[in-house]
Design a protein around this nucleic acid. Structure first.
Length: 634
RNA sequence: GCUGGCGUAGCUCAGUCGGUAGAGCGACGCACUCGUAAUGCGUAGGUCACCGGUUCGAGCCCGGUCGCCAGCUCCA
């Protein structure tokens, strides 16, 4: 039979040759380091027997697929260790995930960090014992009986719902598990792993099913790569917005108001800078900023459909017998506002923007600093338009998204989220909306992936995942196309021929929730904001008390030039003042002493580049103004 | 909401066997008038998350509540 290799060469082997034998024949590093192989596009073990002509590719842990298999096998080794230490443990599932793997167990008691140590030690023993992985297929009924005899009720449940008539099981040493495979050749091939944490997880992700214990771990091809990954996690911890928010005096949280943010003056400065930026971009595009009520009678929520689809996430108030709900979204209010007057086809699109407060009753366990809150503000807007304007308006929004994210140096990807199971309106309308979004994306030449069933209850949406400086993804922007609200609110415009037509609506937020977006920015920039965003752009540091008066004049001139500047006139050594400004990540420090007073200059120190030498104040102002106005990311 | 863990000064943490609480940093005061990442000395600061129980006596043991953390579910 003919075996074709990725480099295009074709070699002849007798039928029944294993992939491993082919690898040995080829030789070289890839063959030596290969963990699994892809044969005609399908992943297989190295002991797989080739029976006919095939294209094969050997996969080392340097490939995504190879690394994934390595992690999957490490999960099996972990399960083996758990079984050795806790023979009564029942196995659930143990897949590889992004950056690692997990395995869920039903255990008689809660695991402690010490248990993780013991499990890791047992894993190291299993790795040094170097058991080969083997594969066996059996009839489904036989497999069910096999796992039932071993008391593995979760495996039995999986098998009972499995389509495969001949499921496979894998074995290494004494450990046997139901598994599709493939796996690495032997446990000794695991070179670097770490167990990270234990947490509860529902069987099959269903909150009505038993809670299992999930152990998270990770594995890499080499110790260096593992160390690099662990260092990335440590860096993420150092950048945690909850910690930096406190240290930089941006915001705080109190148990008196779980899920709400207290914005300190510096944090709120940042917040205002973002809103100003949003206005600056939206006003030229015809957005009209409005403010609408934040508490409405439930009758409005019934009209909008929130009562039926979103009630559990709403703060409800009994106001003297009147049932009212705090708004989780602005759309119903904007619909009422739209219906306040008669619109001509010529007036469309009408774009209402609002930055006001919203409240969503999020489950207590989901709250997370500023990233997941109950009280929020969005750079929200609703566009009322004619059907023939959909493509052009979606394109304009896409272009706005681009303008905003590029200002923060953030790349992003687009997801198209389609009709969820619990949806409102007609199937036909949904299909029309989904098709319109696809057309707009394609016309704009944007790449996107499809995220099935993740749309809002009133329409399909485009979600934007931004990637931060540590490579983590966050969902911020959302653009939703909606045919339902105009219907429910009986909105119309007067068309050319005088008839009443139904407008379409686009719901859109770019930064999304500002609380969340600022949390992301704090972590993205590690608190060292570019000058245009920095709450304090300059701190003026007089060396002695004789220089305070001059320093105060410098600060005032900076303020006149629209630069946010502070004066540190405390009676401290210059080194101490500099250290404090550095720790606060203030972009520029202006040191002024006798020489500067004399020459009417300032000695400029940049938080990263250090001492920049002296220059006339006007020169510095010109430079920093340019940096601010151009929204430089340096 | 669920599972597990945690809650002591503004922050980070110590507190032994149950005997009424401590450090460093920060804050404040005083002195020092200083040239690019920490001057010295002193002072104040605690309902040990909250409520209840056991005990002669609870930061410590038990129960409940709240909050936070890691996940799950949900999601911007």
């Amino acid at each position: 039979m003919a075996i074709r290799l990725p480099d295009g060469t074709v070699r002849e082997y007798p039928q029944g040759t294993t992939v491993r034998e082919v690898a040995q024949d080829i030789g070289g590093r890839t063959a030596l380091e290969a963990l699994v192989a892809r044969v005609n596009g399908r992943l297989v073990d190295l002991f797989y027997r080739l029976e006919e002509d095939a294209e094969i590719e050997l996969l080392t842990p340097a490939t995504d697929a190879g690394l994934e298999v390595l992690r999957h096998s490490t999960a099996h080794v972990m399960a083996q260790a758990v079984k050795r230490l806790f023979p009564e443990a029942r196995l659930a599932i143990g897949p590889p995930i992004e950056n690692g793997f997990y395995y869920d167990f039903d255990l008689p008691r809660a695991l402690t960090p010490e248990d993780l140590e013991r499990i890791a030690a047992e894993m190291r023993r299993i790795i040094s014992e170097d058991y080969a992985f083997s594969r066996q297929e059996m009839d489904r009924e036989q497999a069910i009986q096999f796992f039932r005899d071993r008391g593995e009720s979760y495996k039995v449940e999986i098998l009972e719902e499995l389509d495969d008539p001949r499921p496979s099981i894998y074995q290494q040493g004494e450990f046997i598990d139901l598994c599709r495979g493939p796996h690495i050749p032997s446990t000794g091939r695991i070179k670097a792993f770490a167990l990270r944490s234990v947490a509860g997880a529902y069987w099959r992700g269903d909150s009505h099913r038993p809670m299992l214990q999930r152990i998270y771990g990770t594995a890499f091809a080499t110790q260096e790569e593992l160390d690099r990954y662990l260092e990335l996690l440590a860096e993420a911890e150092r950048r945690d917005h909850r910690r930096l928010g406190r240290e930089l005096d941006l915001f705080s949280f109190r148990e008196e108001a779980p899920g709400f943010v207290f914005w300190h003056p510096k944090g709120y400065q940042l917040y205002r800078t973002l809103v100003d930026f949003s206005r600056e971009l939206q006003e030229p595009r015809g957005y009209l900023e409005v403010s609408t009520p934040w508490i409405y009678r439930t009758t409005l929520w019934e009209t909008s459909g929130h009562w039926q689809h979103y009630k559990d996430n709403m703060f409800l108030i009994d106001a003297d017998g009147d049932r009212m709900g705090v708004k989780p979204m602005n759309c119903p209010g904007h619909c009422l506002l739209y219906s306040q007057k008669v619109h001509s086809y010529r007036d469309l699109p009408v774009k209402f923007a609002e930055y006001g407060p919203l409240a969503r009753f999020e489950a207590s366990g989901t709250l997370h600093g500023a990233l997941r809150v109950r009280g929020m503000h969005q750079d929200d807007a609703h566009i009322f338009l004619r059907e023939d304007q959909i493509e052009e308006q979606i394109r304009e929004v896409l272009e706005l998204v681009d303008a905003i994210y590029s200002a923060f140096g953030m790349a992003y990807t687009i997801k198209l989220s389609t009709r969820p199971d619990e949806y409102m309106g007609e199937l036909e309308t949904w299909e029309k909306a989904e098709a319109a979004l696809v057309r707009a994306l394609e016309a704009a030449g944007r790449e996107y992936t499809v995220n099935p069933k993740d749309g809002a209850f009133y329409g399909p949406k485009l979600d934007f995942d931004v990637t931060d400086a540590l490579g983590r993804k966050w969902q911020c922007a959302t653009v939703q196309l909606d045919f339902q609200f105009p219907e429910r609110f009986d909105l119309y415009y007067v068309d050319r021929d005088g008839s009443h037509k139904r407008p379409v609506m686009i719901h859109r937020a770019i930064m999304g929730t500002l609380e969340r977006f600022i949390g992301i920015l704090v972590e993205h920039f590690a608190g060292a904001f570019p000058v245009w965003l920095a709450p304090v752009q300059v701190r003026v540091l007089p060396i002695g008390s004789d220089h305070v008066a001059y320093a105060a004049r410098v600060r005032a001139e900076l303020a006149n030039a629209g630069v946010r500047a502070e004066l540190d006139d405390r009676n401290e050594k210059i080194g101490y003042k500099i250290r404090e400004a550095q720790v606060q990540k203030v972009p520029y420090m202006l040191v002024v002493g006798g020489k500067e007073v004399e020459a009417a200059t300032v000695a400029v120190r940049h938080r990263r580049a250090g001492d920049q030498g002296s220059m006339p104040l006007a020169t510095f102002i010109e430079r920093i103004r340019h940096e601010i106005d151009s929204r430089s990311l340096d």
